[in-house]
Design a protein around this nucleic acid. Structure first.
Lengths: 119, 119
DNA sequence: CAGAATCCCCTCAGATACTG
DNA sequence: CAGTATCTGAGGGGATTCTG
């Protein structure tokens, strides 16, 4: 069946709101790592619910790993891009290249204020 | 603003159900061209409504062009991938490469029965 | 701080029926 | 053949509240 093919699935969750920005935010972090609260602050407008949902998805997809330090207080949760997650950054780069080539009206998107332009 | 960045937009409509498969079906056609009814038959399970919607989207995004031959009867409508559309095929190829590398359980997806595997 | 649980709205996409 | 129009159900995602 066509729907079983992973390419569809991949694009599907990549396209969920915030997913891309979360991946790029992790990519910018030291060791490709960020804490929950850091992500929350960096991604202005995201709610905890959505952030938690997206991170869970990415975790079950093997794109990020979670490390919880329960010994500390308050609890720390750190999220790190896996190797496959880094591979996805390449994919995103490809999409951006396409967008810059064919969507000229968005060329201004090379500015620093755009999270995606870190690529 | 983050949401204004085209990379998000691009992934968003790419991820709409059927969009990917439509692009690939056009890619397989002679001169990257297919008729409405050919697409409808090739994409088993798609409804006319959804097919028409997706094609309109792709047209306004400059990814396909439409040529209507009204002189013929019945009317013929042909859809052709543009250059930017061909560029998207490369992007899809990248996503597939990622999926094959990191989603091993879907390796069987190299079969001929999968539309995406034409890549 | 890092979440889980509810509620609510809105878009997507399927089914069906109709037209030039 | 190539659409358009309308109705409907499922799921995404935002806001808010509660907990260890």
């Amino acid at each position: 069946m066509q729907e079983t093919c992973t390419v569809n699935q991949t694009v599907r969750y990549l396209a969920r709101k915030w997913t891309l920005l979360i991946i790029l935010e992790l990519y910018k972090g030291p060791g490709y790592t960020r804490r929950f609260s850091e992500l929350k602050n960096a991604l202005e407008g995201i709610t905890q619910k959505v952030l938690a949902e997206r991170l869970r998805e990415l975790e079950t997809e093997g794109i990020v790993t979670r490390h919880v330090d329960a010994s500390a207080f308050p609890v720390r949760s750190e999220y790190t891009l896996t190797e496959s997650g880094l591979g996805l950054v390449e994919v995103i780069r490809g999409i951006k290249a396409w967008a810059l080539t064919w969507k000229l009206e968005n060329a201004e998107c090379g500015g620093q204020d755009c999270s995606v332009c870190v690529l």
